[in-house]
């Protein structure tokens, strides 16, 4: 029982085995839903008419806006997981937080990249240091910092609480960054973002956008569940290797370190 006493936080509280069973059943369903939503969303996007102001570049909106929403949603999922870690010390919450971080970083990068590709033809610039873009860039830095933190500990279970505390601290600052939009705009005044938000969207654009957002959400939940499954397997392998090493070190003490 030695590994149980050394690492009680991993296996004692939750039931990752049950989660694995659920995930194995749920993932195929999620994959099908994702592809269906994507197909419908893309079809609706491509039959959408040309916007009188933006031309065909509205097509970028259908992948840019969902990516930006998902960048925020992923952080919310991570924050909820962080609460799970802090309050209940639930290991699955840590697994969830850790597997969501790279996905969040990916969506943030996509939002920035597609936004940049949209900004060039519309506003004539790849990048503008306005509040919206800068705050999303800060979000990306926070994601990358959290990923770095999750990899910095030798013992993964030790990283759980630091990660959770840091994630929640980051969340407390995100609304503040968001509110700064108004303040900062008075200094820099880029007409860009407000022009982008203002047009009351017609249904011919709104429906494809919403379906694409749902499709992106489905992508996130599918990949998140798959990544969580990987992370649980990772920890099992780790535990097994450690117990194997311990057994070896009992029989052949000198080779215990290898």
């Amino acid at each position: 029982m030695s590994s149980e006493t050394i690492k009680p936080s991993i296996w004692a509280f939750a039931n990752p085995t049950r989660f694995m069973g659920f995930a194995n059943k749920a993932i195929p369903v999620l994959v099908i839903i994702t592809f269906l939503l994507l197909a419908v969303g893309l079809w609706l996007s491509f039959i959408a008419p040309e916007d009188y102001q933006q031309g065909y570049t509205v097509l970028i909106m259908f992948i840019h806006v969902p990516a930006a929403w998902l960048a925020m949603m992923t952080y919310s999922v991570m924050s909820i997981s962080a609460i799970g870690t802090i309050v209940w010390r639930h290991p699955l919450a840590d697994v969830s937080l850790r597997s969501a971080a790279p996905l969040g970083a990916m969506f943030t990068i996509l939002a920035l990249a597609t936004g940049s590709l949209w900004g060039k033809p519309m506003w004539g610039t790849w990048w503008e240091w306005d509040a919206r873009m800068t705050s999303v860039l800060v979000l990306l830095i926070i994601y990358l910092g959290l990923i770095a933190l999750s990899k910095a500990f030798d013992e993964p279970s030790e990283a759980a609480l630091p990660l959770a505390v840091m994630t929640l601290t980051g969340f407390a600052i995100i609304p503040i960054i968001k509110f700064s939009v108004d303040w900062w705009n008075t200094l820099h005044q880029p007409a860009s973002v407000s022009r982008l938000d203002k047009p009351a969207m017609g249904p011919e654009f709104l429906y494809p956008l919403l379906i694409m957002a749902l499709a992106y959400m489905a992508i996130f939940f599918t990949l998140h569940m798959m990544a969580m499954r990987n992370e649980i397997l990772n920890r099992r392998i780790r535990t097994m290797k450690m117990s194997a090493a311990r057994k070896q070190s009992v029989t052949i003490p000198n080779e215990g370190a290898t």
């Binding site: 800060v138 830095i141 926070i142 990358l144 910092g145 959290l146 770095a148 933190l149 910095a152 500990f153 030790e158 630091p162 505390v165 840091m166 601290t169 980051g170 600052i173």
Partner: peptide, 20 residues
């Protein structure tokens, strides 16, 4: 506090604290 257990936490603190 987060990086108190890290042997090489100095850089990481800056990366985590600066965006905040």
């Amino acid at each position: 506090a987060v990086s108190v257990k890290l042997p090489r936490g100095g850089m990481l603190i800056s990366v985590l604290v600066l965006p905040l």
